[in-house]
Every structure is written in C-alpha cells, then in structure tokens.
C-alpha cells in the first residue's frame, strides 16, 4: 500500500498566495474527496503533487520517498497519475497515441534500428483498455479532437489507468459526462479502491463525492479546513465548510 504525504505545502503565483501550508495524507485503498469553492486551490494542489507546478515550501513524499523536486515524468513512473480538469489531451493525435503519450513502447526495427515506436502494440493495448472501460468511440485511430467531451474524458481516464497507477487524481472527471457515464466512473473508482489504489476525487457534485469517497477534505483559500469521514458527516456540514459558514 502506498501513501502520499504532504506537509506545509505552499504555492504562490506572483503576489497571489494560492496554497497556504497544506497538510494531507492519502493511503492506498482510500478514496478521498477534495472539495472547495471555485478558486480554492484544488487543481493547483493536485498539480503540485504531479509535479506540473513546483512548490515554494513544504514537502511531498510518496511511499516514503521525497518527491518534492522530482519532475512530472519521474513521478508518473512512480505511479502517480492525474486526469486533468482540462484533460491535457493532444487533439490532432489519435486516441491510441494519446493513451500512450510519454510512455511509448519501442522495439528495434528489423532487429537493428533502435527506438522504433511499436505502434501495433500501442493500438492493441489501447483497444484493450478502451474495451475494459466500456467506452464507445468510433475508432482508436481518429484524432482525439474529433471526439465528444465525454468521450475525451474517458480517453483521459484510460490514459491514467493503463500503466498500473498507485495514486490516481481525478479533477472533475464527471463534469462532462451523462448520467450513465458518471455511474461507470464511480464504479471504476470503487474497483480501483478494491485493488488498493489511492484515489483523490475533485468534484463540485457532492452527490458523486458522497457516493464514491470514504473521506472528504475541504479546501478553503488554500487551507485544509476540514478532514471528515463520510459516515460521520453529512452534506449540509460539508457545504457549510465550503462556503466558510462553519465555526
């Protein structure tokens, strides 16, 4: 079981202090809901975990290893995956290549020339992943930009799950989805939990958060102001923390 530990994480953009010393710990097999107002700093905090943003202060460890100064590629290799709010897909590249972006399997061409991207393997494995997730797309060979928002969302999820992740961060994964797809994402999260994966789910839909997460963390103006067990709280309490009406 892997554990993510954040202590005293701070981040500012110019004069704007976005994270004010965040402490948080998430373990394998746990699904943590991260909620908070627009601009509370949720996405920023998650990007600090994946390394897309560097932090100003504080320490981030994963499996006991200090990852504070590792680049995003290294953190991905350690099993930290994120589905970004803006999806971070490459629209002109095909579905399969998007899923394997940054992780292209290679072989030797004619047994000689190195670094040949094994496109047939990419296609086969991408198709398997798509089938496993039950995604409906016309073909894995079409550019991602030609898919619907919901389809793109599932491609981003497929990319995060293809490489045996230990921690999966989902930033608003259900925002663009229809009811049936939301259901399947929530089922997926439950399946990941049972496999011992640690999950952080960011969502404004408290129904989804309460359905999927055993623990709910509230971020307000860059501070963790509440860390609640689902079974010991209710929606109105969480809402009052989010809007700052509590205590």
């Amino acid at each position: 079981m892997s554990t993510l530990e954040l202590s005293g994480v701070e981040k500012s953009f110019g004069a704007v202090q976005v994270l004010n010393g965040v402490d948080l710990s998430v373990s394998g097999g746990e699904v943590v809901g991260l909620v908070g107002d627009n601009g509370a700093g949720k996405s920023t905090l998650m990007k600090a975990i994946t390394g897309v943003y560097s932090t100003d202060k504080g320490r981030i460890t994963f499996d006991g290893i200090d990852i504070t100064n590792l680049d995003p590629g290294k953190r991905r290799e350690m099993g930290i995956e994120m589905i970004y709010q803006d999806l971070a897909l490459a629209p002109q590249q095909d579905v399969a290549n998007n899923i394997f972006l940054g992780r292209e399997p290679t072989k030797r061409l004619l047994g000689l020339i190195p670094c040949f991207v094994d496109k047939s393997r990419i296609d086969v494995e991408a198709q398997e992943m798509i089938d496993r997730l039950g995604v409906q797309i016309p073909s894995i060979h079409i550019p991602v930009g030609m898919l619907s928002g919901g389809q793109q969302q599932t491609i981003a999820i497929a990319r995060a799950l293809t490489f045996k992740p230990k921690l999966v961060i989902m930033d608003e994964p259900t925002a663009a989805l229809a009811v049936r797809e939301v259901e399947s994402v929530l089922n997926l999260i439950e399946q990941m939990r049972s496999e011992g994966i640690a999950t952080i789910l960011i969502s404004h839909r408290l129904n989804d958060v309460f359905a999927a997460c055993g623990r709910i963390v509230v971020l307000r103006r860059g501070n963790v102001i509440a860390d609640l067990k689902r079974d010991e709280t209710d929606m109105s309490e969480v809402v009052s923390y989010i809007v700052g009406a509590h205590g």
Binding site: T50, P72, G73, K74, R76, A88, N98, L101, R103, R159
Partner: peptide, 8 residues
C-alpha cells in the same frame, strides 16, 4: 500542457 502532463 498535454506533453508536460504526460511527463515529457
């Protein structure tokens, strides 16, 4: 962003 997010 896509490139950066995937560790490139």
């Amino acid at each position: 962003n896509s490139a950066r997010a995937t560790g490139i």
